[in-house]
Design a protein around this nucleic acid. Structure first.
Lengths: 148, 148
DNA sequence: TAGAGTTAAATGCATGTGCATCAAACTTGA
DNA sequence: TCAAGTTTGATGCACATGCATTTAACTCTA
């Protein structure tokens, strides 16, 4: 049995929803206007690049992005069809595969960043001081790490 | 031309995404397990109840919830079909309509709240002190209010 | 007050998502 | 070592969403 949430908690939750929708909408609109791929695609490319030459297994990517399994499976389908990522079999686990970005995928991500950065600044950055941004990031980080 | 976002800003944005997904996932799972309606349905019912006897026009609800117009239109279709909300014509504006909750809608919202509250506490509340929750709510509030 | 422009809401069609389930490979334990 | 259970990833089907467009009503201007 959990205690009832305080008013501040309920407010924080509600605003998390709304703030997220507001910021997301703003960012997506800007990316779309620039003819760039969606945020999800960017995130996949970034996570894969960060993973380095070892690449990432789909289930690892799934955990990192908090994506549903079936959802990620089909997202990778589309990105593979677009030539941005590559699946390759892995010898240690016959079920599994490893994902890598392609040259085109890395190029696209690089090309996307300036617009994305500007969108982030517009949707989020300009509303906060440096200290506030740090506080916000720190508080939100706790929620991310606590996935049950 | 906007300045480049600082690292803290980018981190805050990233964590907003992930924290939202984490918290949302947790809450939705709990509602689903209890056989209760989705968050969106709850939010619509709540907003309409808050609006009092005057009800709300779809476009007002849309702005409050940051929902896409076509999306809300069909969401209301479904909730109307389920007998939870009612559309009624408005005399001042022949295009428009007003939305109200039905008795069944209000009953459902009331019945949902305990589970929802517990889910909020689990997904959000338990990770923060009272002061932190207030800080978080306050920071997030700025993003919501700044929809362009 | 007619016509152009705007706003409110709905909808056809393509695409994306959720749920359940599946198949195949791995692990565990008697 | 074999059967039961688990993990990885894909997929059929229903439903939801996004985009573009439509219809109807309102507003504003000349």
């Amino acid at each position: 049995m959990t205690a009832a949430p305080s008013d501040s908690v309920v407010l924080a939750w509600t605003r998390l929803e709304r703030a997220h929708r507001a910021a997301l909408g703003g960012v997506q609109t800007r990316l779309k206007k620039a003819g760039l791929p969606s945020l999800e695609w960017y995130d996949v490319l970034l996570e894969l690049e960060r993973a380095g030459p070892a690449g990432l297994r789909p289930f690892e990517l799934q955990k990192a992005m908090l994506f549903a399994q079936y959802n990620l499976s089909r997202l990778i389908d589309r990105m593979e069809a677009a030539g941005l990522v590559a699946r390759s079999a892995i010898e240690l686990d016959g079920r599994g595969q490893v994902l890598h970005t392609t040259r085109a995928g890395r190029a696209l991500r690089r090309r996307t960043w300036p617009t994305y950065a500007e969108a982030i600044q517009h949707a989020v950055g300009r509303h906060f001081s440096e200290a506030e941004a740090r506080t916000l990031a720190s508080l939100l980080g706790r929620l991310h790490r606590a996935v049950d």
